[in-house]
Design a protein around this nucleic acid. Structure first.
Length: 281
DNA sequence: AAAAAATTCAACCGCTTATTT
DNA sequence: AAAATAAGCGGTTGAATTTTT
């Protein structure tokens, strides 16, 4: 059942290539007994002819029980896009925000779906999803607010018997209502604006024409857009403002940005990821 | 129907970083 | 303190599979 793999051979004492069910079983049993880690002793203790490196990889990327198995969801894709815009090819960093997904998986996903030369189609798809998701968030928000408003209206029932019981002495009812409505409107606008800001702040995709959308490297979404949306599919990277190189392959180097993430802005900006049940950083 | 081209993804490699001795 | 070993990371590969011609 297993021996038919062409390249599952021995090389320098170690087996290589695809893992068989039996090998998996051995490794799983080993981890059950000894826990994760100490990968080099797997071979010694179980007789499995695999290097520690290979064992670790197999466990981390495939056997780990907490792995999510299905396809990447649109939500996850959205997170990948946004975090990739933020972190570049730091796959393991990105993976930490996607429970059950491995860096390898995310890397593969990104490369096959968004790497260069054919973004026209795929990016458009992603963009459509992105916008749809945003719409949904907005309408959800509005709905909630609507309910909220309704509740408040019911809290002050309209007694039409005698107008003697004034709600707020001194302030005419009409004016108070107006004021309240204005408050709601303000709140609504504020939240909407927040959401826009937050989603567009590091939007890697073509949808964003907002001039307030600045990418860390200095290029703006708009310029990225025009660069990547041009369907010429010219080779690879585009130079933006002479500052950041936006490649669909190797991105800018963010090494200098990495360490001041604990500033509050990031946390609050991305708290919506947590709201979606996704761990962030 | 079959062959060629394209895509996918598990697993590898080399290098870097962290831990242990 | 430093050498050795282990873990972790990101890029790359290529067999298997899927799509196109």
């Amino acid at each position: 059942m297993d021996g038919q793999f062409g390249w599952g051979r021995e090389e320098g004492g170690w087996r290589k290539g695809p893992w068989t069910a039996q090998e998996d079983k051995l490794l799983v049993e080993y981890v059950r007994q000894h826990g994760e880690g100490r990968w080099n002793s797997v071979a010694k203790l179980t007789g499995l002819k695999r290097s520690g490196k290979s064992c670790r990889l197999r466990w981390v990327n495939y056997l780990r029980p907490d792995l999510k198995r299905g396809k990447i969801t649109p939500q996850e894709e959205s997170v990948i896009l946004q975090l990739h815009a933020l972190w570049g090819n730091r796959w393991s960093t990105i993976a930490r925000s996607l429970p059950g997904r491995t860096d390898n998986e995310i890397k593969n996903y990104w490369r096959t779906h968004f790497k260069k030369a054919k973004p026209s189609k795929n990016v458009e798809r992603a963009r459509a999803r992105f916008l749809k998701q945003r719409r949904e968030m907005q309408s959800q928000l509005l709905l909630l607010q609507g309910q909220d408003q309704h509740r408040q209206e019911e809290e002050q029932p309209d007694h039409d018997d005698d107008g003697a019981s004034e709600a707020t002495p001194g302030v005419p009812l009409e004016e108070e209502e107006e004021q309240q409505q204005q408050q709601h409107e303000d709140l609504r606008m504020m939240l909407q604006q927040d959401m826009d800001d937050l989603l567009f702040q590091f939007c890697p995709m073509a949808s964003c024409t907002s001039s307030s959308c600045l990418l860390p490297g200095g290029g703006s979404c708009a310029s990225v857009v025009s660069a990547s949306a041009s369907e010429d599919g010219s080779s690879g990277d585009h130079q933006l403002d002479g500052a950041a190189t936006w490649g669909w392959g190797s991105l800018w180097n963010l090494d200098d940005v990495v360490d001041d993430v604990d500033g509050g802005a990031w946390d609050s900006s991305f708290s919506f990821l947590q709201d979606q049940g996704l761990a962030f950083y």
